[in-house]
Design a protein around this nucleic acid. Sequence first.
DNA 1: CTAACTCCCTGATAGC
DNA 2: TGCTATCAGGGAGTTA
Length: 274
Amino acid sequence: MPELPEVEVIRRGLTPHLVGRKILAVVNAGRKLRLPVPKARLQELVVNGSITELSRRAKYLLIHMANGAVLVIHLGMTGRLRIFPANTPLVRHDHLRFRLDNDQELRYNDTRRFGAILVFGSQQAMAQELFAALGPEPFDQEFSADYLLDMARARKQPVKNFLMASRTVVGIGNIYASEILFAARVSPIKPAVKITKKSWQNLVAATRKILAAAIESGGTTIADYVDGNGRPGYFQLQLQVYGRGGEPCRLCQGRITKIKQAGRATYYCPRCQR
DNA sequence: CTAACTCCCTGATAGC
DNA sequence: TGCTATCAGGGAGTTA
């Protein structure tokens, strides 16, 4: 589900509900997510602590505690994070509840349990263990045509998979990869090493434009994504190629093609994207 | 080293 | 209707 825009929308939506609040208790339903829920560390470092800030790195939501600890939440494919009045009945797949000091609860629901909850004692420890192998954020200066040209040296990997690899750049998932490539008029199957500097410039610009527009629209809701307040996104209304296999290209009226790359669906217009 | 495949898990949907 | 196969927004580990 959530790529960078969705996590960012959730971060912004939850911030006013969480910053300054105290976490009174963490209730764990017991099922393991991608990793076991670190119950002892939650108890030790998060319970009875106050939240100072919410930030984001890649697709990780970071909840910073006044004691310096960081609660890290990754939503996987189907994770949802929402605020509810504490007396709201639980539903299927509610795995974790964070009881706040205002009779509200932050609830983590995850059908497929591909998400993860992690706790670190400090930002340094988190960065060391979690972020060491991650590439730059798409909105960082470092993410540039020159950087991509360098990273793509000797890489025969298709540019779509290259853009989705977190060591290249973080936050681009399967929906936005197809949309970005269409916006830049670059074929997803072209080997990364063959992309020209001019095309990398177009791809950098397209990445920022698409991700910013998606954030502005509240993210993309295909099946079940909702933000921290339960609201869906609307960027699906602006999708140009994703999910449009067999339909006409909005630019040339040719057919949008669906292919599979490294096990994931890719959509593109073979006439507009070269 | 690279890059594709496999698996984690549940649920929706398509096809027979 | 009911079964089976396929697919799904992520990512870590394995394989060739």
